[in-house]
């Protein structure tokens, strides 16, 4: 079971969180004209990376904040966690 550092609450076990997908995907702005390809990339197309990966988790049974977690998908090592409003560098 992963041990995730919530930037708001500290180290918590994985069973308090729910997974939320790729953290680097940006939703296109509202009312913006975009191509089908761009929209498909946002809705469907994901890289299933092996290795370091920024992903979203929600601290569902804790502070309910969405956080960003940098994790290795192969080894499960967690390198960094950020608050929702912090930019991935």
């Amino acid at each position: 079971m992963l041990y995730i550092k919530c930037p708001h609450c500290g180290m918590r076990s994985q069973n308090e969180f729910s997974y939320g997908g790729d953290a680097t995907v940006k939703r296109p702005e509202l009312d913006k004209e975009i191509s089908d390809q761009e929209w498909d990339n946002f809705v469907y197309n994901r890289k299933s990376l092996r290795g370091k990966h920024w992903e979203l988790w929600q601290h569902l049974s804790g502070c309910r904040q969405w956080i960003k977690v940098e994790r290795d998908t192969a080894t499960h090592e967690i390198f960094n966690t950020l608050k929702a409003n912090e930019e991935i560098s």
Partner: peptide, 13 residues
């Protein structure tokens, strides 16, 4: 609720 929190915290803060 999670859906609303997602948009408020991440998409339209």
């Amino acid at each position: 609720l999670s859906h609303l929190e997602y948009y408020l915290q991440l998409v339209w803060p």
